Structures are given as structure tokens and as C-alpha cells.
Simulated assay, not measured.
Amino acid sequence: MLQNLTGWHVLIILGVLIVMAAVVVGGVLMIVALARRQAPVGPAAPVDSALSAGASVDPVEQIRKLAELRDQGLLSEEEFQAKRTELLGRI
């Protein structure tokens, strides 16, 4: 059966196999990207414990701790700005 294949047939079959492999690899990469996006960046406990000290801790010190958490990638810039605005309102 394979003896009846011409060069064009082989090229078409190879092209189809390459496209199928690209689709599979793309699907795997998409699944990995979605899994990373949904996975938590870090534990929530350090963020909560750094902020739960309450009024006994100086708001400026809390902002410094928040900046460290942001720099470590545990807080997004939006979360940092929101909490920073809240803490500046206490001063």
C-alpha cells in the first residue's frame, strides 16, 4: 500500500501530522497557562498576618510590609494601592 504513495501524498501526510502535533502542543500549553493563572500566587496567611496587627502597628510600617509583599509577588499592585490608601486614611 505504501508503494502507491507519491511524493505529494507523503508531503500531505507529513503536513497533517505536523499540524496535529502543533494543535496538541498548543492545547497543552494553554492548559498549563490556565492552571498557572488559577493557582494561588502565595499563601494568604502572610498577607493577613502582616495586616492583622491592627492599630498597635504604625500604618507607615504596615505600608512598608505591604510593599515588601508586593515586591515578593504576593500582592498585586492593585491590592497594594487599595490597602495603602486605606492605611493612609488612618494617619
Rank of each mutant, 00 (worst) to 15 (best):
Met20Pro: 00
Gly42Arg: 10
Glu77Arg: 12
Ala39Gly: 03
Ala39Phe: 02
Arg70Thr: 07
Pro46Val: 00
Leu51Gly: 02
Leu51Gln: 04
Val10Ser: 06
Glu78Thr: 12
Arg84Glu: 15
Gln3His: 02
Met1Trp: 04
Leu11Glu: 14
Val25Tyr: 07
Leu69Tyr: 05
Glu61Gly: 07
Trp8Gln: 13
Ser52Gln: 10
Met20Lys: 02
Pro46Trp: 01
Val25Gly: 00
Ala55Thr: 13
Gly54Ala: 05
Ser76Gly: 14
Ile13Gln: 09
Val47His: 01
Leu75Gln: 00
Trp8Ile: 02
Gly7Phe: 03
Val19Leu: 13
Gly42Gln: 08
Pro43His: 10
Ile31Gln: 11
Gln72Val: 09
Glu86Met: 11
Leu5Phe: 13
Val23Phe: 06
Ile63Met: 09
Arg84Thr: 14
Asp58Ala: 04
Gly27Ser: 10
Ala21Pro: 03
Leu75Arg: 01
Leu14Tyr: 03
Ala35Cys: 03
Leu2Lys: 04
Lys65Met: 15
Asn4Arg: 11
Glu61Ile: 13
Leu51Trp: 01
Ser76Asn: 11
Leu74Ser: 04
Arg70Asn: 11
Arg84Gly: 02
Leu5Glu: 09
Ala35Leu: 10
Ser56Trp: 07
Ser49Thr: 09
Ser56Cys: 00
Ser76Leu: 08
Val60Glu: 12
Ile13Thr: 07
Gly15Arg: 08
Glu68Asp: 15
Gln72Tyr: 10
Gly7His: 08
Ala55His: 09
Met1Phe: 06
Asn4Ser: 13
Leu74Pro: 00
Leu87Trp: 03
Leu2Gln: 02
Val47Asn: 02
Gly26Arg: 05
